[in-house]
Every structure is written in C-alpha cells, then in structure tokens.
Design a protein around this nucleic acid. Structure first.
Lengths: 329, 329
DNA sequence: TTGTATGCGTTATCAG
DNA sequence: CTGATAACGCATACAA
C-alpha cells in the first residue's frame, strides 16, 4: 500500500474545529454558515491540511464531475486539438475528463460505454464510427460529426458550407476544372456534406468538377491512379483539388510532386480541418478551418445541460478559409 | 437530474440470485466461489443488467484505478504522442487517466497536485517546469524528462546519446562546421543533455561547432540574427545544424529558406523528438526519435509499481536517428 | 442556523 | 465456502 491512509476526514475537521460534521460539509459546499463557525472550520482545515475526498461525494450524490470523451486517438492532430479544447472547457466548469481511445475499433466504442457507466461519468461526448452503436438513454450523450437521432445532440462544423467555400475559393483563384477527393467510412456522417457543399457551389458557379469518394479500406494507390488518369500530354487536366481532410491533401501534394507537378503553380489544393504545423505554426495546407474551440464549447455545454432535450439536435458551427501556401491568392 | 438513479446494486443482484451480498462481491472480484453460486450470480447479473459501481469501491478501498497525467498540453505533437501511449499503457492495466493541462503555467502545476489528491488518483505522471514544485510524498510520483531527487523516478530518452548521434550523423554526411541551437527553460532538465552529448561528440570527432542556447522568453528573432551573423559572401558558414526540438528545426528551416538557402543542399538540419506529419506520415525533419512508447511503458509501470523505492531514480531509454529529408544520406 | 443520524455501493472481517 | 454486518467519507433530511 503505497498511499498514506491517514488522510484527515470531515469528521476530523469537525472535531478539531469543535463543530458538527454537517457544518463542515456546509462550509465546504459554500452554504449558509455562521461567520464564527465558518472561521473555525476553515482554520481547522488549514491546521489539518484537510483534502476533500471526491469518492465519498461521488458515492453519496452519484455525480462524479467527470465527462467521458470517446475519440479514436490523439495522434491525429485534429483529434488532439479537440481533446485539448474539450478538456479546457471542462476544466472551466470544474469537470474532469475520462479519455477513451477507440483506435477506430467499433467494438471498443461499445465497450467504453459500459466502462463509462461503471465509472459513473456524468455524460459522454463521442466521436464514433460504429454504425450499430447503441446510445445509452440513461446518461447524457452528445456526438461530434455524426447524427444519430433528434434526441442525441450532434455538434459539427458547417461541413456543407465549408465545401462551398472551397469551391468558391478555387474558382476565385482561377481554377477551371476541379475535383473533390476523399476517403472515409461509408457511414453518412456530417463530414460527408463536404462533398455536397462543394458540388453545390461548383454547379452554381458553372465550374467543371469530378468526385472520387473511396471507402476507408481502399488503398491510397487508387488516388494516384486517379491523378495519373488525368495526365494529358504530360500536363494535369485538373487545376484545382479539394480534399476531404488536410491529411489527404498533404498526401496528394506528395504524390503530385513525385509526379513532377508543382503546387500551387500547376494545381491548387485545399484541404479541410485547419491543421497547423506543430499545432501552433502555419497551416500545413490551404484549408477550411474547423472551429474547434467553438465545437468543444458546444459539446461541453450541451452535455452538461440539465435539459438535454432542449438542445438542438444538430448544431452547425461556421468554418472559414485559411491559406497554407497551396493556393494562388 | 438527467441520470437514471435506479441502477441495480449488488444487493439487488444478491436478492435476485438468492445469495448473500458478499457472495456477489466475491464473484465479481473473481474470488473462490462455489460453481452453483457463481452461476446463479452471473445469471442474476445478466437479468438485471447490473453495472459495477466504481464510486463505492473507490470509497471503500481508497483506490480509484486512476493515474493523473500532468502535461503542458496536447497540441504539441510530442505531448499528444505521449498522452496517447500513456493512456494505452494504462488501459492495458485497467487504469484510467486523469488529464491535467498546465499550459506551462507553474501555478497550475501545483494546483493540479491538490486536485489530484482530492480525486484520490493512485499516482501521478508529470512533465513539469516549475522549479519549486513540491513532490507529494503520500502518492506515487513519476516524472518525465526532469530529475528531482533520487526518490522520484525520472523517465527520459537518452538525450545525451541523442546529441551524440546527431553530431555523428552530421559528420558522416559531410558537415565541417556545425551548430547547436535550442530554446528552453533555464531549468537543468534531461533535454539539456542534448547539447552536452552533441558537444561531446563534436569534440571527439574534431568537428568545429558553435552553441546558442536561448531562454524560453527570448524572441525567435535572435535565432535569425545568429544565422545572419554566419552569412559570409552570401554563403552560410555553417553546413550542419542540430536543433533542440523538431519544432525549432522546422522554424529554422523556414528562416533559412526565406534567406535563400536550401536544405539539405546548403545546410543539413537535424531536430529532436521524432515528430511525424499528422502523427503517422513521414518525419517532419531529419530527427533523433524519442522512444515514446517505451517512455510511456516505463512511466506507467513505475508509477504502478508497489515498491516505488526499488525503481531506478533515472531511467534512460535509447533513441535513434531517422531521416526526414533535411540531411544528405 | 447547527447538530444528529442515516445511507449511498462496495469490500472485508468475522461467524457459521 | 457462504452469510451477515460493519465501515469507508460524504450530503442531506430531520430534529433541536
């Protein structure tokens, strides 16, 4: 037993202060207590170095001041950003975060919900991919980027709007023939709308476009094949690309450079997410920036809301464009 | 109250199974129980959908199966990697992680230790910078990259060895005049040894070298001034640079390119940490790779060790070199 | 306003 | 091997 088990309790404080146990509790919870009593209790707390024990309170109130965050990992910089801002928002409200990494494993998504229940978290914020995931109805649940039902609030960036902006920017920067490429689960989630917005704006602008949407399992080489297919007389027949994520954009740029094309001179590229070098430097590629901080704030205030049912079932937050040097401003 | 408060308890299970409360507890904790009893209990658990309640156990045993991780943030990709692997290691051992972001704020480092105590975490893994931080002696404490005393295990990469490798590689790739640049706290922590190793190998190899170590607060422009000072007749008088971190390496490369120099043709660059693009793609720069997974494993097994005092006070884990295209292999 | 007493769900001790 | 029962630290309903 490495831990010192002699930590003072409220009873010790009460004895030291010469007051009742309940009074100590009331002082600690900031309730109405006589000035003299409060002073005595606070002094006793100081003298004993009393530390509040959350386990007792959790048992008694069935509230742990903990919110679970279920997310694939923290290696992907976008997820890392999300974890960071959600934790900050939780901390502001005096909540702790219980982190659950799924690694995109669908079974683990389900198992974590069990685990979270055992740990009596006060709510769950989840970014998941399991198509059959059952949402618990006995614990506040908020999802990111994926709509389950009207009773489960979904927080997402304005993916559709982002797609539109991408098309508009490419057009504005002189593109004539563009394409949208993405990979992702077959699940129709919010990010799927990036394509829809892009297509919508292309049609509106009379911009010639193509779309290539691959499944998650598809090998990356299929994207390279697509690019190869668009080489005519040594030149690329596309002059603008919009990619589902910044990561894909970056990969595509590598491929283009290997093929001997220059970005943005020969072909302009826009990604999605708003990933910065080392999290705080310049954007990795020109991109549609997700409002991560607002998303985090919305998730936390939704999951902590006393009346979850009054939360809109889909909260869409505005995105914006930012240059990362892969477009011709 | 959003949460359903009618969750079944062990007493309910006991009643349903027609056994005693203690028997249920023993079944759940995998202790010796008669076959028939075990079956009855397990069936009752199924029927009632019983979920173990950790709050009760935590109160009773004063163990929460939670380890606190105190770290600046998760935006820096190196920290993100650390958080990820530590969480994985904890999960393997059926432990949860309590994440604390300090944002490099020294006061918060101290406050978190209080908070962690209140939450009765079973141990702390900390990556801190507060020079006056008081290590609690009533809770297992392990530190990353910073040595406090022989009684506080410190886990770190072999920073000295990494510095040596950097010098050796630069020499091997044909450099004649190199420099080490870094920024960091004045704190003498383990990463400070990157310089020592580098210098040691330079001396050994007879490689001409310079060193520029700036304080955290120093403006980045001082690095650019240093570079400017080494431009002679439009050429850089240095042909190899070793930087304290990959992030600094990347920033320096930006500066060099703005100044019209090419990397690695004109000057070769090696960083430290082993940051990959998007966490899983190619290395951002040529680098000394920290063994993050091993560090995580060491931290977790140290902090969970029953006899912390038997843990070596400094655990140094081997690093290796990896190319990121900023060196001439 | 303050004191007292009970119970939250669990583990552990002791009898049987 | 199993059953009954007493804590663990705290919040709260109720009594004073």
């Amino acid at each position: 037993m490495a831990k010192a088990k002699n930590a003072p309790t409220m009873a010790d404080v009460a004895r030291e202060a010469g007051v009742a146990l309940g009074t100590v509790s009331r002082v600690i919870n900031g309730q109405q207590v006589g000035e003299e009593f409060r002073r005595k209790v606070e002094e006793a707390i100081q003298r004993l170095g009393y530390q509040y024990n959350n386990s007792g309170r959790a048992l008694r109130t069935d509230r742990t001041n903990t919110i679970a965050l279920i997310i694939p990992n923290t290696i992907n910089p976008y997820f890392a950003l999300l974890v960071h801002h959600i934790n900050i928002e939780l901390e502001k409200r005096n909540y702790r975060m219980l982190l659950c990494f799924t690694e995109y494993d669908r079974d683990r998504e389900t198992e974590f919900i069990q685990m979270v229940r055992q740990n009596r978290a006060d709510g769950i914020i989840a970014l998941t991919y399991n198509p059959n995931l059952t949402i618990p109805d006995d614990i506040p649940f908020v999802t990111i980027d994926r709509f389950f039902s009207v009773s489960v609030p979904c927080i997402a960036a304005d993916n559709f709007g982002g797609g539109r902006i991408a098309a508009q920017k490419l057009a504005e920067f002189g593109c004539r023939k563009v394409a949208f490429l993405r990979t992702g689960s077959s699940l129709t989630n919010e990010p799927s709308k990036r394509k829809d917005g892009f297509v919508s704006a292309c049609v509106e602008l009379g911009l010639s476009f193509e779309v290539l949407a691959l499944e998650d399992e598809a090998p990356y080489s299929q994207f390279e094949a697509f690019l190869q297919d668009h080489v005519v007389d040594g030149k690329l027949s596309l002059d603008g690309l919009f990619l589902g994520t910044d990561m894909l954009a970056w990969q595509i740029i590598q491929s283009l450079q290997r093929m001997g094309f220059r970005v943005p001179e020969d072909v302009q590229v826009i990604g999605f997410d708003g990933i910065r070098m080392f999290g705080n430097q310049s954007y990795v590629v020109s991109t549609i920036v997700q409002p991560v901080q607002d998303i985090a704030e919305a998730c936390v205030s939704a999951v902590l809301s006393r009346h979850l049912s009054t939360i809109p079932s889909l909260i869409c937050l505005p995105v914006h464009y930012a240059s990362g040097g892969t477009t011709k401003e």
